[in-house]
């Protein structure tokens, strides 16, 4: 299958300093759910801004849905890729939640009878239908984040990029948002999300791309990436607490490689297996 996102040797620097992205190569296939992680300042947001035309890559370097981002109008690109900003206040400007979510749809030139049901559906997806007539500025930060998410969901673009979608959300809301994103992924949307929450990565991403000082230093299956503890430490990232816990226990099983634990449930299964191995060993 042709990649839906193809980045071919992209480098970039803002005017005031060092290069932020160095020679990035990345291919993402349709239907993937990719977490983009790295320290503050690693270049994550700068990278995804090249996918939506907010930063213009040199010609031929970045393609999204077979469009060359360098010379495609943002209005055309925005039918293919939706972007949820890290700070919802960079995105929200209407004075009702409903108008905010309808804005992008109206821009696409959709008829009113199509806009309304899409707005209602998107607000219901993020649990804000009861606040449709509120002014977004009166909502909490977490709620505003969900308004921003709804306005992108409503566009139903094949690719959705989310920059720290769970900032300012509590535990339950984080799970709800990610469950929603997972559902979109299962419905066929390609998802790229930036996050600092390694538990979310462990639970929801099938692939992890680690950026460190503008370079991709790890890219692969989530479990394999979390196995690379040295490389992760180099980019100053910490795997989830249970992953570290299993590493520190360092209890071998009857397998050649030690398992990488990604959740509390997996940790419990691992403990049971270690106990079995010990029990059998003790019986010999």
């Amino acid at each position: 299958m042709n990649p839906v996102i193809k980045i071919d040797g992209l480098s970039f620097g803002y005017e005031f300093g060092d290069s932020v992205l160095k020679d990035i190569y990345l291919e993402i296939s349709p239907g993937e759910m990719v977490a983009l992680v790295g320290q503050n300042g690693a270049g994550k947001t700068t990278l995804v801004k090249h996918l939506i035309g907010l930063l213009r890559p040199p010609a031929g370097k970045v393609r999204v849905a077979d469009l060359d981002v360098a010379n495609t109008r943002v209005s055309k690109l925005s039918r293919q890729v939706g972007y949820v900003f890290q700070n919802p206040d960079h995105q929200i400007f209407h004075d009702t939640v409903q108008a905010e979510v309808a804005f992008g749809l109206n821009n696409l030139g959709l008829p009113r009878e199509e806009v309304e049901p899409r707005v209602t559906a998107a607000l219901s997806d993020v649990g804000l239908e009861h606040l449709a007539n509120e002014n977004p500025q009166r909502l909490s930060r977490g709620q505003r984040q969900r308004v921003a998410l709804a306005s992108v969901l409503a566009l139903r673009t094949p690719v959705i990029v989310l920059d720290e979608p769970t900032t300012g959300q509590d535990y339950q809301e984080r799970k709800q948002i990610m469950a929603l994103v997972e559902q979109l992924n299962k419905a066929g949307h390609t998802i790229v999300f930036i996050t600092h929450d390694m538990s979310l990565v462990a639970h929801y991403a099938s692939r992890v791309v680690v950026l460190c000082q503008g370079q991709i230093i790890l890219d692969g299956d989530t479990r394999e990436v979390f196995r690379q503890t040295d490389k992760l430490a180099e980019s100053l990232l910490l795997p989830p607490q249970v992953t570290v816990l299993a590493n520190q226990l360092n209890e071998p099983l009857n397998t050649s490689v030690s398992p990488v634990i990604l959740s509390v449930d997996e940790m419990q299964e691992y403990l049971q297996r270690v106990r079995e191995v010990k029990r059998n060993g003790a019986g010999d």
Partner: peptide, 12 residues
């Protein structure tokens, strides 16, 4: 008030 909301794990 949530001083680490936008920080990476080590920054937090």
């Amino acid at each position: 008030d949530e001083p680490t909301s936008e920080l990476d794990p080590l920054g937090s």
